[in-house]
Each structure stands twice: as C-alpha cells, then as structure tokens.
C-alpha cells in the first residue's frame, strides 16, 4: 500500500490541537452544566398536570428533539442575530444551540425518572402526613435520581461528540483545528484520525463509568 501514515505533521501542529481540545472541553462543560440544571425545571413542567406549564415545555422539547443539532447551531449563528439587536460569536451561538438541546433531552430524563417512581411510594409518604414537597424531597427524588444517573452520563458522552458540530461555524474546537491544520499541511486523513483518537481517550472512560452505573446491583431498588 502506498499510503504513508506519517503523523509528524500532527505532532508539529500539536499546539493548535491542544487549543482545540481545550475548547472542546470548555464548550462541553459550558453546555452540560446549565443543560442539566435547567432541564430539571422543564422536566418538572412536563411532569406537572398544569396545562400552562405542560404545553410550553412540551413544545420546547419537541422542537429541539425533532430538528438536527447542526441546524440548531447554524440557526443561532446566522438567523438569531437578525432577530436580536446584537452580534453573536461562534462560541455563544454553539453554546446556545447545544445547551438548549441538552435542556430538552435532559428534561426528558428527569420526567421519565420521576414517572418511574411507583404511585404507591408517593401515597405511602402522603399517608404518613408528608406534604407534596416532603414526598418529593425525601422519597421520589432520591429514588429517581439514582435511576437517572446512567442516562445523564450517556447524555454527557453524546454532548461531547456533538460539540464537533460547532466546527461548521468556525468555533475552534478539535474538528475545526484539524480542518485548519490540514489546509496547511495537506494531511486531513491523519488530522481527523488524530481527532478520533483524542475523542476516544476522552470519552471511553466515561462510557465505562456508565456501564458501571448500569450493572451495579444496588439493593436500594434501582
């Protein structure tokens, strides 16, 4: 085979890749934290029986679940600035798209987790004389959060892979850096291979952790 797997150029531009890795991690966590935080409110709204909470939350979730993330990111970069009186940089646009997407998906995890708790456990708390919030805090949340953990970890892995989409609006994460280097060094195959390896090293431990969550046999009825 005539192809030379020469990674010298990759090594030569390692400083640029390093910046890419930092940016990937930065945008990943910037989206994950508020995504999970606000997801609980949207999830609670969808769990609620009140229509004025349920319907807005449902519409929000369905819009973000049923459109491509790539389009969401591009929309916030190109279309959103037309609607608002300020400019928006690539980082903010990508963060907005990915965060709202994470809010939508994590809200579904919260909702499913809450719904997985048997009605009888709410009732047992209520029969003891607990208020709604006591039932939620003492019984339902401790049980459901345990059940949600694997799904959240999975979502985290998904989110880090989705950050690569921010490259289309020239945010300098790993993929965009690889693209930039390959236009100088003419080595796209090696650059993207290097990117894949970096992502793997970053995310594989997380995936192993998820499996741990799933297989751990916990007597506390997960």
């Amino acid at each position: 085979m005539g192809y030379e797997w020469d990674f010298a150029a990759v090594f030569q531009y390692r400083a640029l890749l390093w910046v890419g890795l930092q940016n990937t991690i930065l945008i990943g966590f910037t989206c994950l934290t508020p995504g999970l935080f606000f997801g609980r409110f949207v999830g609670a709204a969808r769990f609620s029986g009140r229509w004025w909470l349920y319907y807005p939350a449902a519409i929000f979730v369905e819009v973000f679940r049923n459109t491509p993330v790539l389009v969401q990111i591009m929309w916030f970069f190109f279309a959103f600035p037309i609607l608002v009186p300020f400019q928006i940089d690539a980082f903010s646009a990508a963060t907005l798209g990915l965060t709202l997407n994470t809010v939508a998906f994590s809200s579904e995890i919260y909702r499913a987790g809450l719904q997985s708790v048997e009605r009888g456990l709410w009732e047992a708390g209520r029969a003891l004389g607990m208020t709604f919030w006591e039932q939620l805090r003492r019984i339902v949340l401790p049980i459901s959060v345990r059940r949600m953990l694997p799904a959240f970890a999975k979502r985290g892995v998904e989110l880090f892979k989705m950050t690569s989409l921010a490259s289309v609006i020239a945010y300098g994460e790993l993929i965009h850096q690889a693209k930039t280097i390959s236009t100088i060094a003419f080595n796209p195959i090696k650059m993207y291979t290097a990117d894949a390896l970096i992502f793997f090293v970053l995310l594989f431990p997380m995936t192993v952790l998820v499996r741990r969550f799933e297989t751990r046999n916990d007597p506390r009825g997960r």
């Binding site: 048997e118 009888g120 047992a124 029969a127 607990m130 208020t131 049980i143």
Partner: peptide
Amino acid sequence: IRLRARVGMVFQHFNLFAH
C-alpha cells in the same frame, strides 16, 4: 396533612421506601 399523620395506613403492596 395533620389528620393523615394521626391515621396509620397499610397498603396491599407494602409501598416501602426502596432506598
């Protein structure tokens, strides 16, 4: 809520707090 605290209830399916 005050009344429920004074009335004990035992359910068909036990409904113990699993955690």
